[in-house]
Simulated assay, not measured.
Amino acid sequence: MKTILNIIWLVLCGLWMFVGYMLAGVLLCITIIGIPFGLAAFRIGVYALWPFGRTVVDRRDAGAPSCVGNVLWLVLAGWWLALGHITTGIVLCITIIGIPLGIANFKLIPVSLLPLGKEIVRTDEAFGYAGR
């Protein structure tokens, strides 16, 4: 079922969201300071391309630098990417078949706003991260 949802996702919105994240990643990698943010955009872009079967977990070892980085990310790229997820999610929720995909888009909003200090793992691995 995850594979079918991922294929439908890829056709309807995954490819476009992936391109948006890759564009943001390339723009952020122009400067040396922006490279960590660009890498985060690339990581989330791959997640946005094929999201079903994976989830986002908090990293316990992320500290103050990731908090400061998240504020910068929010200003530089996060709100643009979140706006893309909101728009795509609303459009997908118009049809009954698109509702699960729209909800998946809404679930990507938090990681698109504040990606640093998070890790993307397979859903069956997520339980192992709860104790960290």
Rank of each mutant, 00 (worst) to 15 (best):
W50Q: 04
D61F: 03
W79C: 07
A77C: 05
W16H: 12
L76Q: 01
L27Q: 10
H85N: 12
I8A: 15
K2Y: 07
R59D: 13
V111W: 00
A24Q: 05
E119V: 07
G25W: 03
T55I: 05
V46N: 04
L83W: 06
V26R: 03
G98C: 08
E119D: 15
V26Y: 10
V75D: 02
V26H: 06
A64F: 14
P65C: 01
I97D: 04
W9V: 13
I35M: 10
L39T: 10
L27S: 08
T95A: 09
I94N: 14
I109D: 04
D58M: 02
L28E: 08
G131K: 00
G69M: 06
F37W: 14
F18L: 06
I103D: 13
N6K: 07
K118Y: 10
N70W: 13
D61T: 15
R43W: 03
L10P: 02
I90R: 00
P100T: 06
G53S: 10
V11Q: 13
L5F: 06
A126E: 06
Y129S: 14
P100N: 12
W50V: 03
L10M: 10
I94D: 10
C93G: 07
V56Y: 07
G63H: 08
G63A: 11
D58N: 00
V46P: 01
C29Y: 12
G53A: 00
A62C: 13
M17Y: 15
L116D: 14
A104S: 03
V19H: 13
G53P: 14
I86H: 00
P110V: 03
L92G: 03
F127T: 11
L116C: 09
I32M: 01
Y129R: 15
V57T: 08
G25N: 00
T55S: 14
P115L: 05
W73A: 04
P65A: 02
G38F: 05
G89K: 13
R132S: 15
F106M: 04
L114Y: 05
T55Q: 05
G69T: 08
P100R: 10
I97A: 15
A130W: 03
G53R: 11
N6M: 12
C67N: 11
H85M: 09
L5K: 15
I96V: 09
A82E: 05
L81F: 08
L108S: 11
G14I: 06
A64I: 10
Y21P: 04
V26A: 12
P51K: 05
V111H: 01
L12H: 04
L116S: 07
N6D: 07
A64Q: 13
V91K: 01
V71Y: 02
N105M: 10
A41S: 12
I97F: 01
I96Y: 02
A77L: 07
P36R: 01
W79G: 09
D124Y: 12
V111D: 02
F106H: 01
F18V: 02
W16R: 11
K2P: 14
L92S: 13
P65S: 04
P65I: 00
N105R: 12
G131P: 14
